[in-house]
Amino acid sequence: MKTKHPYRLGVDLGGTKIETILLDPEGGSLGRERTATPRDPDGPTEYARIRDRVHTLIEAALGKVPHGHACTIGIGIPGTINAQTGRVQNANTTGLIGHPFQQDLETRLGRPIAMENDANCFTLAEARQGAAKGYDLVFGIILGTGCGGGISINGKIHSGRHLIAGEWGHFSVDPEGARCYCGNRGCVETKISGGGVAQSFFERTGQRLTLEEITEGYRQGDPQCRSAFEQFLDDFGRCLGGLISVLDPDAVVLGGGVSNIDELYTLGVEQVRRYAFHERIQTPILKHQLGDSAGVIGAAWIGK
């Protein structure tokens, strides 16, 4: 007897790896596969190689779906789809930029697929199955080398008119701040991403330290690391407090490597309360539960 619920195939396309997952109609995993993302920086073949690799992985996963059963397909990418042109924009994997990635795959597969920003996929997964399960309006944040965000409302991604809802990482909070790759100055990403904090530390001290190393230096009492880390916490509070004042989500969930810094959930939350436009802010700021599985699980849930 066939189930009324479909199987779900998710693809998480990142800068270093591509991962697929196949979920059964009850949401259980039937298998995952991970492979390196083809790279040819500044070369003419990178896009074609990525497209072909993703297509091959999808076909292989579809081969595991029982005959006659429906299966949706969703793909998370490190960028967004331009609502007017259908082409990839603002992608960290630069070989995708300017290409009709979704259309090309749909043509090859002969069927529709869903495609969303990877931060949206992370947010949806944590809202449906992870740390933010049970909350209606969830803002998800990926803090890593860069900074991304997504909005889930009642278990569905809110994409917005231009498909950029949640792109909080490129909200300019400091007109005198560092130049961001997007062209503006002082974006949230330049302030609280791992890459942004490390670059700021280098410009002030001449030392090349990662945020992880800066954090450890702070814990050990190093004066330069202490100053940098306290600035990071202050920036975190200002950026997230302002967001909460505008969106007033039921919960915020943090993911990415930077989200593993324990002080964010204590000292960082104190700073958020300082900057939010409410004297007793109650918004839960949650650590992810699904780890690096969130992206691919979320991709499976967006599928069509």
Rank of each mutant, 00 (worst) to 15 (best):
L23H: 03
K156T: 10
T94S: 07
T190P: 07
L96R: 04
E230T: 04
R108P: 02
E26C: 08
N184V: 06
R185K: 11
V258W: 02
Y7F: 15
R32C: 05
I297D: 05
F229T: 03
Y7V: 04
G169I: 04
Q199N: 15
P44K: 10
L247P: 06
C147R: 01
G63S: 11
A132D: 08
Y181K: 13
G130H: 00
R226T: 15
W168L: 14
L240A: 09
V138P: 13
L209S: 00
C71S: 09
G148W: 07
T80A: 14
I157P: 06
L105N: 01
R161M: 10
L163S: 13
N154I: 02
G155W: 02
W168V: 12
F201G: 08
E216Q: 14
R87D: 07
Y47H: 04
Q84V: 11
F229K: 10
V188M: 01
G241H: 05
I141M: 13
D52S: 14
R49Q: 15
G195I: 11
R280G: 04
H67C: 11
R87I: 06
S227C: 09
T20F: 14
I142V: 15
T3P: 05
W168A: 09
A294N: 03
P38I: 09
G256D: 06
R238L: 15
T94C: 04
R51W: 03
S29V: 13
T145F: 06
D12V: 00
G95H: 06
R8E: 02
C225S: 08
R111Q: 15
E203K: 13
L163R: 12
I302C: 06
E270L: 07
E203H: 10
W168R: 11
V173P: 06
R34I: 12
Q207F: 13
G217Y: 00
L62R: 13
A276W: 01
L254I: 10
K2G: 05
V188E: 01
C121R: 00
R87K: 11
P112Y: 07
F232W: 08
F122L: 11
I113F: 00
R39D: 02
S152R: 07
L211G: 08
V272Q: 01
H158F: 14
L233D: 08
C147K: 02
A300I: 11
G27N: 00
F122S: 00
N154R: 13
K2E: 12
Q103L: 08
G160T: 02
T215S: 14
Q103M: 11
L211D: 10
Y135V: 00
T72H: 06
I75Y: 06
G217T: 01
I113G: 04
I18N: 03
L267T: 07
L243T: 04
H158V: 15
T205E: 03
Y218S: 09
V65F: 01
N90D: 13
H162S: 12
T123P: 03
H5R: 05
K2W: 08
G241C: 02
L286H: 02
